Simulated scan of single mutants.
Amino acid sequence: MLSNQLNAKPHYQILDGLRGVAALIVVTFHICEAHATSKFDMMINHGYLAVDFFFLLSGYVIGYAYDDRWGKLTIGGFFRRRLARLQPMVIVGMVIGAICFYYSDSPLWPNIHTVPVWKLLIVMLVGFTLIPVPASWDIRGWQEMHPLDGPGWSLYFEYIANILYALGVRKLPKGALWALVLASAALLVHYLLTGPNGDVIGGWTPNLEHTRIGFTRMLFPFFGGLLLSRITRPAYIKNAFLWCTIILVIVLAIPRIGGPDNVWTNGLYESLVIILIFPLIVYMGASGQIHSAKGKQLSKFLGDLSYPLYITHYPFIYVYTGWVSRDKGMGFGHALPYALLTFVVSVSVAYAALKWYDEPVRAWLKRRAVKA
């Protein structure tokens, strides 16, 4: 019944494509990260900021898609729609993570001979819910709230953002939303300029420090994106997909700014990227159009692939990182064929999960909603 009442709005094709570009950069960043000796020599150095870009995109799209629908849409209906969109792939990510953990072996984490299978299965089942795993159940020992599929932490905060939006923030007048966004921006800048690391890396450990980082990373981008959807109207920008992609790749790949003695300079850079450049990219993307059939196909492919790729690729990164760790002196050139294999496997598995699982499951859930 609900689906009949809510006619789907057209997608911003370029924003879909940019989400896919960011997901591909995340995979590349994580592969390269296995060869870094510290945060100061990582390749694709700011690739982790793609998560903050995802938060901003999500806030923008949520505002565009739902702000004018609350006369017909209930809170329960909103949550059901978000669960149907996000949760099926969470389950797949955890299953793949459990399989990779069972069959992989590395000095970086305990193997299946020291972790009972029943414990692995319980961690997987808890992971299906995105409830953080307590430290005593961290079977990998990397201090992750989801040790089988690390990126689950950002989905955890995505759900919190959705809950906050549905229960109250959606009702805020423009002035109050401005105040929330400005306060969140101040919180973000304060952390980046005064914190010990000069970056927003973190959010995945179930403790107070990482909980603070997680909320700091989520609040401004998500609600800043929501505000952007309310105060701007797309214009027309020629070749927007190309320009947005170039800017996004540059800001995520740029080397670390400064060194250990002046980490605040990198924090200043990340503040500018998250608060100014990411909103600009989203506005430009919303203001562009794709006219060619091939361009539309590429954008749709990237958009469809983005979420499955993000939530399923990291178990293969565990395997790759474990393999690299066996040879401490291994250069990236020597590992390149295996790095490319990891990239191809990650994309292939994500696409298979999309076509053979995610799309059929969401179609089935939609049919059930129509009958309800």
Results as ranks from 00 to 15, higher is better:
Val61Gly: 07
Ile311Cys: 02
Arg233Asn: 15
Gly333Pro: 09
Arg80Leu: 15
Gly225His: 05
Gly303Phe: 02
Ala369Trp: 09
Gly214Trp: 00
Val347Gly: 03
Phe220Ala: 08
Ala286Leu: 06
Gly288His: 01
Ile75Tyr: 09
Ala34Pro: 04
Ser346Met: 04
Tyr103Trp: 15
Phe79His: 09
Gly331Cys: 10
Gly63Trp: 01
Ala293Met: 14
Pro279Ile: 00
Ile317Ser: 05
Phe301Asp: 02
Tyr351Ser: 07
Tyr236Ala: 14
Leu15Val: 08
Asp68Val: 09
Pro337Phe: 10
Met94Ala: 13
Thr321Ile: 08
Phe101Asp: 00
Ser325Cys: 05
His113Met: 10
Gly288Thr: 04
Asp261Ile: 10
Cys244Phe: 03
Gln289Ala: 13
Val263Phe: 05
Glu359Asp: 12
Gln5Asn: 11
Lys238Val: 11
Trp118Thr: 15
Lys294Arg: 15
His313Ala: 06
Gly47Ile: 06
Lys119Thr: 08
Trp243Thr: 05
Ile91Ala: 06
Ser325Gly: 06
Ser229Glu: 01
Gly63Ser: 08
Trp137Met: 15
Tyr338Cys: 10
Ile275Tyr: 03
Gly195Val: 06
Trp142Arg: 12
Met330Glu: 10
Ile14Phe: 03
Val273Met: 03
Phe241Asp: 02
Val95Asp: 08
Leu73Glu: 09
Leu309Gly: 07
Leu336Pro: 13
Ile247Gln: 01
Tyr156Gly: 00
Lys366Phe: 08
His11Ile: 11
Lys355Gln: 14
Ala235Phe: 13
Arg368Ala: 14
Pro88Ile: 01
Phe215Glu: 00
Ile62Gly: 06
Met1Thr: 13
Leu182Met: 11
Asp68Gln: 13
Lys39Asn: 15
Leu49Ile: 04
Glu270Lys: 06
Gln297Pro: 02
Val319Pro: 07
Ile290Leu: 14
Trp118His: 15
Asp68Asn: 09
Leu15Lys: 07
Lys174Pro: 05
Leu226Met: 02
Arg256Phe: 07
Val181Arg: 03
Val27Trp: 03
Met43Trp: 15
Thr211His: 08
Ile290Pro: 11
Ala36His: 09
Arg81Leu: 13
Leu193Asp: 11
Leu182Pro: 06
His313Asp: 05
Asn45Thr: 13
Ile213Pro: 00
Leu83Phe: 14
Arg140Glu: 04
His190Gln: 11
Gln13Cys: 10
Leu188Cys: 07
Val133Phe: 00
Ile277His: 03
Val126Tyr: 00
Gly267Arg: 01
Ala286Glu: 10
His210Arg: 05
Tyr338Phe: 14
Leu192Asp: 05
Pro337Tyr: 03
Thr205Ala: 12
Leu2Thr: 13
Ala235Asn: 12
Leu155Ala: 06
Tyr48Met: 09
Pro337Gly: 05
Trp243Asn: 02
Val26Ala: 10
Ile246Val: 14
Leu302Trp: 02
Cys244His: 06
Val251Asp: 03
Val90Ile: 11
Phe79Gly: 01
Val21Ser: 01
Gly76Asn: 13
Ile247Glu: 00
Ser104Arg: 06
Asp138Pro: 05
Ala335Cys: 13
